[in-house]
Design a protein around this nucleic acid. Structure first.
Length: 522
RNA sequence: GGCCCGUUCGUCUAGGGGUUAGGACGCAAGAUUUUCAUUCUUGUAGCAGGGGUUCGAAUCCCCUACGGGCUACCA
């Protein structure tokens, strides 16, 4: 039988979590964190959980939790456990785990790793203000705690009395003096901190809720999390968390850490924020979000016409690469090739143009039928009905010109209705004195044609043109103008076929009548 | 200010002692499409600076600069 009594970390099943707080809509950076957790879990055959970190009652935003869940679903990042997904380690909402945390904080008090502090927020603010005057920063730490009001400085009876009297208190972590905390971050390598630089963080708040640090460590332990994969903004609290695991006696079995680089603004300074999106015209949220207070609406990738697979593919490549030249990945391929050691260390500026490129690619890949379904809805909104075969064909012809499904109309409207106006530049350039006469002659010629498929018309038309020795460009462009309203669009003969003989002739005659009356021709 | 992290084309990145420093987005040009777009081809542009170590540094070390994060009874 096995002589090694302890299961090594290698044998432990990988469990990772995405742990957002419901303080507003999920940022695309948050989605990327969720994605990397998801990919890692899938690659390792582990589990991916969703935990809602709602320990700050004051910042709770109604609807945010549902938004997070819906976003993950849209992205296809379905948790194995968590709020809204079941699981054996619940509850997965920290507000519902309130009772659990107090025990562990008490343990820390008993073991001398934490202490009660009675200083009021006002007192602390005053100290911060004073420190600022002398160009320093106040910190509740190994140097200052002996001068403050806490169970380290006050006699036992006084402490007990204050608590019994219902005086508000918090519990702070007692940071060890002058100790190096060294940790191997899975992305950054060795990172070193000294506790002399760290402060005595509040673990338990006056309102009876734990702070992020406490709840996070306790839950990660209880939920048997093996890898903490989170944003770089948490790197500085890693030593606190490590010390907390130690103080709780869990250091032999604690998770490993991986801190992801941040997503930065496309231009200028700082990390990507909601404002950048508004200013530069791209979404920063996966789904549209309506602020419950202001009613202000922020756009979402979904509503802007991005495909989830494009959004995910784009996000995956922001701070990670496979080490090959491959850039287009299905979710399965991402899972296969994902590894934390190929995550980049430096922050990545977000490029909205590249996001569009990904979407264009995925749109072009869609089969015509799928796109036709989307297009059909747009057409229905305009009360346009057409048969599926024709619609599929049209979609197939115009999809290469689109980045978003919403552009289908812009690039294909002329199959459904005549243009309302004609591009002025094209008129000036191509509509000469004899153009009207030529077009009318073409229309007459069309009237006698029996065969109306693109090939036949093209053949007959060429014969017609050659017989007259007319310049193709000087006739084709005006016809296109008549049918489409501009010099754009797919192959002209295919347009003839798809809008039909009658309509083609009608539009040519209509354009001649209208353009001839235009002032720029006078 | 203090602590921590980072720095290769405009942007995302490969490259980890000897490479013509590779790819992608963007941009530009050409080809094709009798238009426009697509597509294809080509081009454009980079190792933050300074010191070391070394026969040799984008690559290792140090300093500086710059960027980022944290520094709440927020996460």
């Amino acid at each position: 039988m096995a002589t090694n009594c302890k299961k090594t970390k290698m044998e432990q099943k990988v469990r990772v979590r995405f742990a957002p707080s419901p303080t507003g809509p999920l940022h695309m950076g948050g989605v990327r964190t969720a994605l990397f957790n998801y990919l890692f879990a899938r690659k390792q055959g582990g589990e991916f959980l969703l935990r809602i970190e709602d320990t700050d009652q004051t910042r709770y935003v109604p609807g945010a939790e549902d938004y997070i869940i819906e976003s993950l679903k849209w992205c296809g990042l379905i948790p194995d456990e968590g709020v809204g997904f079941g699981g054996d380690f619940g509850p997965y909402r920290q507000s519902e785990r309130k009772a659990i945390y107090k025990d562990y904080v008490d343990r820390l008090i008993e073991s001398g790793n934490a202490y009660y502090a009675f200083d009021t927020p006002e007192e602390l603010d005053a100290l911060r203000g004073e420190a600022e005057k002398s160009q320093t920063v106040f910190s509740y730490d190994t140097h200052t705690r002996s001068r403050l009001q806490n169970s380290l400085t006050l006699p036992d009876e006084v402490v007990k009395k204050k608590i019994a009297d219902g005086r508000p208190w918090v519990i702070r972590f007692k940071m060890p003096e002058q100790t190096d905390v060294i940790e191997h971050d899975l992305i950054r390598g060795e990172v070193k901190f000294n506790t002399a630089q760290l402060d005595d963080k509040v673990l338990f708040k006056a309102d009876g809720m734990p702070t992020y640090h406490m709840a996070n460590v306790v839950d990660d332990h209880l939920m048997q999390i093996t890898h903490v994969i989170r944003g770089e903004e948490w790197l500085s609290s890693m030593p606190l968390h490590i010390l907390l695991y130690e103080a709780l006696g869990w250091s032999g079995n604690r998770p490993q850490f991986a801190h992801l680089p941040l997503i930065l603004k496309p231009a200028g300074k700082g990390k990507l924020s909601k404002r950048d999106g508004d200013k530069m015209g791209f979404p920063v949220f996966p789904l549209q979000w309506k602020d419950p207070d202001s009613g202000e609406i922020s756009r979402g990738y979904r509503e802007d016409g991005y495909f989830p697979e494009a959004f995910i593919n784009m996000l995956a490549l922001l701070g990670w690469n496979a080490g090959t030249e491959q850039e287009l990945f299905t979710i399965g391929e991402l899972i296969d090739s994902f590894s934390l050691d190929r995550v980049v260390k430096s922050g990545a500026r977000f490029d909205p143009e590249k996001a569009k490129w990904f979407n264009r690619h995925y749109l072009h890949q869609k089969d015509d039928q799928q796109l036709a379904e989307l297009f059909k809805k747009q057409l229905a909104a305009k009360n346009i009905v057409t048969d599926d075969v024709r619609l599929n064909r049209i979609v197939g012809l115009i999809k290469d010109r689109c980045t978003f499904p919403s552009e289908l109309w812009e690039h294909g409207f002329y199959f459904f209705e005549a243009p309302e106006c004609y591009d002025e530049k094209t008129i000036i350039k191509k509509w000469k004195e004899d153009t009207s006469g030529k077009l009318l002659a073409v229309a007459e010629f069309f009237k006698d044609l029996e065969q109306w498929d693109a090939e036949s018309v093209k053949e007959a038309f060429s014969v017609f043109m050659n017989a007259r020795e007319w310049n193709f460009g000087m006739v084709m462009v005006p016809i296109r103008l008549a049918l489409v309203g501009s010099s754009q669009g797919i192959d002209l003969f295919v347009i003839f076929e798809l809008i039909g003989k009658e309509e083609t002739i009608r539009r040519i005659e209509r354009a001649v009548a209208r353009i001839n009356g235009l002032p720029q021709l006078q």
